[in-house]
Design a protein around this nucleic acid. Structure first.
Lengths: 204, 204, 204, 204
DNA sequence: CATGAATGAGTATTCATTCAT
DNA sequence: AATGAATGAATACTCATTCAT
């Protein structure tokens, strides 16, 4: 296990540094304009090593995208413990935006959208496993609020997309067209308005 | 009107065929992967003629994007004449989706998002003039409903983004990741749900 | 003669303005980088008119080069009337440099040299008719000095190239490699040295 | 020395074949009309390899020009050992012409002059390092003759340009306008005449 | 197992010249 | 006779991927 273990550790460390470099490169430049040579340089490996680990640029990109799924979903940050629906939803909405803006998800989404024509599977996969997976988490969260009688019983598959859509329209959509878009100063007010509209129908 | 008129007619006809070809090419392949030579071939002109009309690929793309602005906005399709808010909003939502899916706006949006890193101005312009311009139209439409007492008085700048966000989340967002996404069979039900949520708060 | 004369006058005026524009353009940019469209624009004619007058870019260039021959040669500026050989040669050398630097001959020579590979005839013609023609004038001038016993009898065909070579080496050759080269402040001293060397052998 | 040495050897051999091919191409066609693809073809490498070695066409050209500097200067061919000034100068003049005509310097000079407008630095560099460098060598050579009392003490910076100018005017200048110009049969006589004129003033 | 030099296909842009009016 | 829009051939440069050591 000595030599083999050493090799595996080295190999895994290279793989990690490649993924880190690739993630940064794809977020900065999108899929098309990211250069394999630059990723190799940033990861401090040769291009041949790069190709040993990831058979093609697309495969590397897919790996980056898949890795991003794992970071998505409802964090355990206290939304469950809130006393009121409004409080719970406010926490959840902020968690959502923190993920989106903190982990470079916006930039990654732009990169995926860019390649939707050329590499359709990546986009479809992200839609199915990333976007929808996240939605499922949100549905479960809403269901828990229903169980706690904080929300009226209703079809949470539909309502989840409604509140998420209201949030995204204001904060995520603009970043698709302007990478320098920053969260506005009235962010909290807009979130509150969205929640109020949501609760006007679904609040108990 | 003899010579000059003839030339203008020919020139305009070439320009139109170039824009048609470019629109299709950009929608199919995005900005980067669209080839000027292919656009010229589709438009049945030489590449030099292409460059006489549009000084560069970016200029051509901007022209296509700007032309798309003009097709956006609230069509005069009867939403104003509806008797109830629900009826008016249903018509408006369907108009919105017809524009989006009928005129290749989805594909164009993907193309613009693709170039947000490389050609940032196009993205920012589209955001400012395309997206926001369309929103202003929608705000005006909501205001007219308020005037007609079909909706409660409220801040329509905020509410317009809410209903639009609920619609987009269900129908537009998926097309960003899957160009083959089709409007689902339960489209009308989803629209109705969104409108109901909206009216729960803003209906009079 | 009315209409025909008018037309000829117009045509000649266009031809002149074309040659003026072309001369400037070729001097500024050399043959290859001069653009026919730009020449037409500067001359305020269409490209088609340009081609009516000059069948090709090379033909136009040849015409410009030939026109430059006419300005070359010994000007009647008093070199003949000088009392001493030194005085006469000083005047002649200055005339030579004034032509070269005043009429854009340096830039034109660069342009001709540029096209020696592509359009060899222009270069050969310039050599034969321009350079050699000028030399003949200079030989005749030296002969007149010999006749006036200001110089020893000798082979002036050889000696003319010697003094011209000494002058050119200092002032013309550098302009071939640096278009911004200016006549140096010690110009007169260098000319005097060249003449002194010349007269050390050929002075009477 | 195993892998690294192998790679260096291969790389250097490629670099040499590129420079040989580029030298020939630039001499034949000048800078502008030389084609990178053709150079690659002649050097039997891909265009990408060409660009790995030389970042741009201009960089490649500069390298060719700089390499030509090294071949210039006074060769150690016996001019120093001559017994008389006339003999020494005759040898030196012939060396000069052999360099100029043997190593394609004439063609290279034409190429440089061609690009004086477009790539001015190359021309200025050649003037400073090539032409002037060569002159310094010639001045040193004349100084050695002065030290040996074969020439009168005098300003050799000035006189060197005089004799070089007399030689160039007869043999180098014509090649600028006619690439097929050959050294004439009376070359030796012309050289002798130039030396005689030079010695009439500076001989001891 | 890692290297990095080499590959070759792919693309935006320019310009002398022609032609329908 | 004059126009100017249209042509199409020509060219520098990039990048994902492979291969000999």
């Amino acid at each position: 296990m000595g030599l083999e273990g050493y090799r595996r550790r080295v190999s895994e460390s290279k793989r990690k540094s490649i993924m880190a470099a690739a993630g940064a490169e794809f977020q900065d430049n999108g899929f098309t304009h990211a250069a394999m040579a630059e990723i190799a340089r940033k990861a401090d490996v040769s291009t041949a090593t790069l190709y040993k680990h990831f058979g093609s640029k697309e495969e590397l990109f897919s790996s980056i995208v898949e890795a991003s799924y794992e970071g998505l979903g409802m964090p355990k940050s206290g939304a469950q413990d809130a006393k009121t629906a409004k409080e719970a939803l406010t926490i959840a909405a902020n968690d959502y935006l923190n993920q989106q803006f903190g982990a470079g998800i916006n930039a990654l989404m732009r990169a995926i959208i860019s390649e939707t024509s050329g590499v359709p599977d990546v986009g479809k996969d992200f839609l199915k496993r990333g976007v929808n997976g996240r939605n499922k988490d949100f549905v479960a969260f809403l269901n828990s609020l229903v169980e706690r009688k904080l929300l009226k019983p209703h079809d949470t598959k539909i309502s989840s997309l409604q509140i998420v859509g209201m949030i995204k329209e204001n904060f995520v959509w603009p970043t698709m067209f302007d990478p320098n878009f920053k969260l506005p100063s009235n962010k909290d007010a807009i979130i509150e308005e969205a929640i109020d509209t949501f609760l006007a129908r679904y609040g108990s």
